[in-house]
């Protein structure tokens, strides 16, 4: 099982949304990290086969996905960022429909068993009979993930899967995906670093349509050694620091404020252990405000 992307480019008129991106993924979870507008959704939509690349190729086990066509869609599970769910359907009914659309050759009993399995995975079993129209945003998101898992996909594409989930569900989903990903290639796009920090085999950092880095989380963190500092400052100095330095955290203490500063040069204070969030901020310093941390 291998997904290879070679020199993938997507242009919309004169605007380049994705520029010569290449990478190769073997089974495991891969985090595609980038701020809004970095090209994450464009890339995942091209890998899902719903956007045609301007140039480059996407290969599954060495074969172009367009040539594989139906065979590729049979091994694909896709959870889009804004899924269209049928509000007049019940959750189970919707999953039965998706099972039919996915061409799963199952008896009714097998189908229902499979549906119960995915509903359990996303913790929606007790809501199986409820109308989708009455679901909260988080429930819809979980149902969308459930449909992606119906065909036990070899390639699972998750586009911002934790958007709208509460912390408990977010952790639960993270653990679920980590468990089922043992024999799958999972590409998880997000701008929430904590979602993938501990489960990703590798993190791809995408910025303005270009792949900036592709490394294991530990390597990325290691590269930040000596660049993260804890600097105590007076409360009235905080705005000036925020203006001039890349601040990872602001912690109010009894007499002062402790800033987590990410910098190539020594800004004062003491050096501290870096985290993946610091990597994210370091790479996306200009656009950090757009991201949701």
């Amino acid at each position: 099982m291998n997904l290879s992307v070679k020199n993938l480019t997507k242009k919309y008129g004169s605007k380049t949304a994705l520029d010569q991106v290449s990478f190769s993924l073997d089974p495991g979870i891969y985090g595609l990290l980038g701020p809004n507008g970095a090209g994450k959704s464009t890339m995942i939509n091209m890998i899902a086969g719903i956007l045609r690349p301007t140039a480059g190729e996407i290969l599954w086990d060495g074969e172009e996905i367009r040539e594989l066509d139906r065979k590729y869609r049979e091994i694909l599970g896709f959870q889009p960022q804004q899924p269209g769910l049928y509000r007049d359907f019940r959750a189970k009914e919707f999953l039965r429909y998706m099972s039919a659309v996915k061409g799963l050759r199952q008896t009714r009993k097998e189908m229902d068993k499979n549906i119960d399995r995915v509903l359990d995975l996303v913790n929606l079993r007790k809501d199986a009979g409820s109308m989708i129209g009455a679901f909260s945003g988080g429930m819809k998101q979980r149902l969308s993930i459930a449909q992606a898992l119906l065909n036990d996909p070899k390639l699972l594409l998750l586009d911002e899967p934790t958007a709208g989930l509460d912390p408990k569900e977010r952790i639960r989903l993270r653990n679920t995906i980590a468990t089922i990903a043992l024999d799958k290639v999972v590409l998880w796009t997000t701008h929430i670093v904590s979602d993938i920090e501990y489960i990703a085999r590798e993190i791809l950092i995408l910025k303005e349509g270009k792949l900036m880095r592709s490394s294991e989380p530990a390597d990325l963190v290691q590269e930040m050694e000596g660049k993260v500092f804890l600097v105590p400052v007076r409360p009235e100095d905080v705005p000036a620091w925020e203006e001039n330095a890349l601040i990872g955290n602001v912690q109010k203490r009894e007499r002062d404020v402790l800033l987590r500063v990410i910098s190539d040069e020594y800004p004062g204070g003491e050096n501290t252990e870096p985290a993946l969030e610091d990597v994210y901020l370091y790479y996306f310093r200009e656009r950090a405000e757009e991201g949701e941390r």
Binding site: A48, G49, Y86, Q147
Partner: peptide, 21 residues
């Protein structure tokens, strides 16, 4: 309506998403 609700994406990435639907 599939296009309005974005459900077309789910259909398009499914095995039977072409002729059968």
């Amino acid at each position: 309506k599939e296009r309005d609700s974005n459900a077309v994406i789910l259909l398009a990435t499914s095995a039977n998403g072409k002729g059968e639907i």
